[in-house]
Amino acid sequence: MFAIIGLSTSYYLNGYLYAAFRSNKMYDPIVSRSSHNEKATRSGGMALFFTFCICYGLGKAIYSMSVDLYALIAWIFIALTGMADDFFSIKYREKFFLQVFAAIVMLQSGIYIDSFHGVFGIYEIPIWASYIISIFVFIVIVNAFNLIDGIDGLSALLSIKFFLLVAGIITISSKEMFLVIPSIVGGITGFLFFNFNPVKKVFLGDTGALLLGSVIAFFIFYILNSNSYIITDDFISRPLMVILLIIYPLADTLRASLIRMYKGKSPFLADRVHLHHRLIDKGYSHWGASSLILGLSITVVMVGVFVSSLSISLTACSLIILVYLAILYYIFFN
């Protein structure tokens, strides 16, 4: 029900906000690194944010939808940061500090990374280390989802994949939190019909990319928090599962940052060194590139789960997955 409400609300709001932005000539500027040439608005994130607010209000009033208050505040704060960036272009340093602040607010929920779950033989970690690592992970995830939002549908499709797979875990451990997921998936799906539309093209903008990144970061905190009951513990390590779920944003961001640093540039510089840009340059359409990356990232999750179920060490699992990633890179992105 919430998926349908989310989808229909998002579809309506995207159309409405597109018209509003268009009437005010608020188009996304076309620059040299842009992958688009059409007039498009950055209203998708706003529509997604309002869709989520409506769904959450309904869910809270008539059903038992509930998320920790601090997480909600952090999401709203990050969405407002994105809105400010969409409208006024905030400087990167200012945006970084606002993201750190949002991460600190989210930590107040008590849901953060408090264990390495056996990675490097480490389990429980001290509270100060938990905070630092959680803030770092939050910043990385939020920006990774922002950085891959370079071609139509990619960020949205990968977010849908993440939410759909994580929903299986959340439905077992928290019914009230689970209801957030169909709302967001519905909202993103409604947006996608505008994102691929050449006539009424809408982008997520920073509002959407940062919001999705922060929601994803919260669910990752939930999975990596030792107090959470995670059904997949019996057959896959939590950190490995989390990495598999966001493999493309992580791998692409890491690769792009390393290339920039190797060239003596800032790792945060906006350019066209991303893997999805490479696919576009090879002649793939936006839909083709996005759906290919989605399909490949699903196969990475499947391979990861299969390898984990073979009862081999975490190091061996990671190596096999790395080999599989290298093969994918060689075939599709080289």
């Binding site: 439905t171 928290s174 107090n227």
Partner: peptide, 8 residues
């Protein structure tokens, strides 16, 4: 005295 949520 540690609480845990076991599931739905």
């Amino acid at each position: 005295f540690e609480w845990k949520k076991l599931g739905v």
